[in-house]
Simulated scan of single mutants.
Amino acid sequence: MPEEQPLQSETVIFTGTLKSVDVFDLVKQYGGEPFSFPLIQVGEIEDVSDESQLQQCNRYDWLIFTSQSAVRSFHSKMERYGVTAEAISSKIAAVGTQTAGALEKIGFQVEFIPTIFSADVFVEQFKPEGSCMLNVLFLRGTLAGSIIREELPFRVEEWTVYETVAKPDSIISIVELLKKRKSCTLLFASPSAVHVFEEGAVPIVGWEGYTIGAIGHVTAKALLEAGAAVDVTPQTYTLKDLVDALARRKEEIQ
């Protein structure tokens, strides 16, 4: 438990969907008050072809997952049609330890994780033997970028298993907090959340007057392109590391 409380009187707003309350507890241990107002919501896409798609998974040498949302949606389909992890012989690649952990919880063994949890680093480092002859399946969401499909040097097919939509009610709640609270921090974990905030909240509250934190260089780039100053970015792309980095920054400027 942190001994110091550098986030004393700080309102810390998470704009992504929290998978665990651990980061909430960490903010409180640092003295801050956490809030969660996801700017996007994720839902599984169900299709009549899902069962057939599942049966075809063994055609692929690798299945690639870049988010826990993809894992949850894929697992939902597995349960719906009675498919177990043992029935899928493909090797598994994951972007990030949390995504890997979600896969391991449902019975998969993850055989590749990039050193930096980002799709652009993934395509640079993912070089399994026989790459030119491989067939891989990328389990994606509706807003996923094209980098995996376009930059991996072998045949890549995609299966869109979940959709991402904006949550206008969260924008209203965040704007109210930013207006009322004296010291606020806004934490972003995806470019999608940045775009939603830019369109719905920035015309009202702007980008100044609060601290901004980002997980990952892609999210940080989206913020910079939107006109925001990125105050905090952790070296390791997890929410826990982002909160730790925020606490260190607040301690330095006190």
Rank of each mutant, 00 (worst) to 15 (best):
E86R: 13
A189G: 13
V71L: 04
Y30A: 08
K91V: 00
A222S: 15
K179Q: 15
I45R: 04
E129N: 12
E4M: 15
P191Y: 07
V83E: 03
F138H: 15
K167I: 12
V194H: 01
L246G: 03
Y162F: 11
L39G: 02
Y210F: 15
F112L: 07
S90H: 05
E4K: 15
Y162C: 04
T66V: 04
V121P: 03
T236N: 11
A229D: 10
E251Y: 08
V48Y: 09
C184H: 02
K91L: 05
F35Q: 06
Y162L: 04
L177A: 04
E46D: 05
R248G: 03
T115A: 09
A189D: 01
I148N: 01
S69P: 00
L187I: 09
E46Q: 13
V156Q: 05
Y210Q: 08
S73Y: 03
R72H: 12
L7I: 01
Y30S: 08
E10T: 09
E176K: 14
G32C: 08
P2G: 07
T17P: 00
E104D: 03
M1G: 15
G16S: 14
P38E: 01
E33Y: 10
Y81D: 00
S131L: 11
V165A: 11
S90T: 01
S9C: 10
S49G: 08
F122Y: 06
L134E: 00
V121L: 02
F74W: 13
S76C: 05
H75Y: 12
T238K: 07
C57L: 15
Q5W: 01
A201E: 01
Q55Y: 06
A220C: 08
V12I: 10
P34F: 02
I172R: 14
Q125W: 02
Q53E: 12
L186P: 06
E158N: 12
E163W: 05
A229M: 12
F154P: 00
R149N: 12
G43W: 04
V110E: 02
T66Q: 00
S52Y: 10
K19W: 08
L39T: 03
C132V: 12
I215D: 00
